[in-house]
Computed example of a mutant assay.
Amino acid sequence: MNSKPILHRDDPKAEPLVGNVKVTRDDWLNVAMDVLISDGVEQVKVLNLADRMAVSRSSFYWYFKSRQQLLDALLDRWQATNTAALIAQAEAPAETITAAVCNVHRCVVNTALFDTALDFAVRDWARRSGKVRRMLDQSDARRLAALRAMFARFGYEAVEAETRARVLYYMQIGYDLAQLNEPLATRLLLVPHYLYVFTGVEPRPEEIEEFSAYAKRCWEGGSSHEPA
């Protein structure tokens, strides 16, 4: 889990605030993100956020012109983190297709790369907003395109690359949505079999060992400081 403090003032590594400033723009965004994930977009209100941070709501307008601008900033952050991370992992160098899929699966185990709870919050938001639905559709299309290109890079024909990209992507969405209470050991035991199903190729033992070690570091030691 990511243990980074939500508020700037609670982070011992943060530079001290000066003057009468008690919170930063990122503080507003971080708390808004927390509320979006836990309570839904309807509760992302200026007064609610101000109460959580114990500050005057007037300070909100130092950073945002309106609640809508804050909501837009939340969507921008989602795109710049989750969507960008998945695409970057799909494009990361790899010697084999199974190693490439392991790169993508780093998004599954490292919350600093990809915040699954945020993704689900945005998907729930999209049910209530046509604008967000369109953004989500565009994001899904970009992610799938990156995965399709990943398979094509390793010689898969167009239809097969498209099909395998869809299986990989939508399986992971469903897997996360199921919220399985699955021990780490069980999940890691299945990794080589998942890789074979996704790719039709037997993974190398060293690829499994490297990914398993990475997953254990993320899940047991916290993922916020684990590199991609």
Results as ranks from 00 to 15, higher is better:
residue 215 A to W: 00
residue 112 A to W: 06
residue 81 T to F: 12
residue 160 E to A: 11
residue 176 D to A: 11
residue 69 Q to A: 14
residue 122 V to D: 01
residue 18 V to F: 09
residue 209 E to Y: 06
residue 113 L to D: 01
residue 207 E to Q: 07
residue 186 T to Q: 10
residue 212 S to F: 02
residue 104 V to L: 10
residue 199 T to N: 12
residue 71 L to T: 01
residue 43 Q to I: 07
residue 46 V to P: 02
residue 84 A to E: 05
residue 33 M to E: 11
residue 196 Y to R: 15
residue 73 A to R: 11
residue 227 P to E: 09
residue 224 S to E: 15
residue 50 A to D: 01
residue 9 R to K: 11
residue 225 H to W: 11
residue 99 A to N: 02
residue 89 Q to R: 15
residue 200 G to Q: 13
residue 220 E to W: 14
residue 151 F to E: 02
residue 159 V to P: 03
residue 30 N to R: 08
residue 58 S to A: 12
residue 166 R to K: 12
residue 95 E to W: 07
residue 92 A to D: 02
residue 47 L to C: 06
residue 208 I to N: 07
residue 59 S to W: 02
residue 91 E to T: 10
residue 119 D to Q: 15
residue 13 K to W: 06
residue 176 D to G: 08
residue 216 K to N: 13
residue 108 V to D: 03
residue 116 T to I: 08
residue 2 N to I: 05
residue 199 T to A: 13
residue 149 A to G: 09
residue 76 D to I: 14
residue 118 L to Q: 10
residue 84 A to S: 08
residue 4 K to A: 14
residue 180 L to P: 03
residue 87 I to M: 13
residue 197 V to E: 10
residue 90 A to D: 01
residue 17 L to Q: 05
residue 165 A to S: 12
residue 122 V to Y: 02
residue 7 L to T: 01
residue 44 V to A: 08
residue 224 S to I: 10
residue 203 P to G: 10
residue 217 R to Q: 14
residue 155 G to T: 05
residue 169 Y to R: 11
residue 67 R to E: 10
residue 63 Y to G: 09
residue 121 A to E: 00
residue 8 H to T: 05
residue 96 T to P: 00
residue 52 R to E: 06
residue 130 G to M: 05
residue 33 M to Y: 01
residue 5 P to M: 06
residue 30 N to T: 03
residue 65 K to S: 14
residue 93 P to T: 04
residue 165 A to M: 02
residue 44 V to F: 08
residue 4 K to G: 03
residue 147 L to V: 04
residue 28 W to D: 01
residue 189 L to E: 13
residue 155 G to L: 05
residue 169 Y to D: 07
residue 38 S to C: 08
residue 58 S to E: 07
residue 106 R to G: 07
residue 6 I to G: 04
residue 120 F to L: 06
residue 123 R to K: 09
residue 98 T to G: 03
residue 57 R to K: 15
residue 128 R to V: 02
residue 177 L to Y: 12
residue 199 T to D: 09
residue 157 E to C: 11
residue 155 G to F: 07
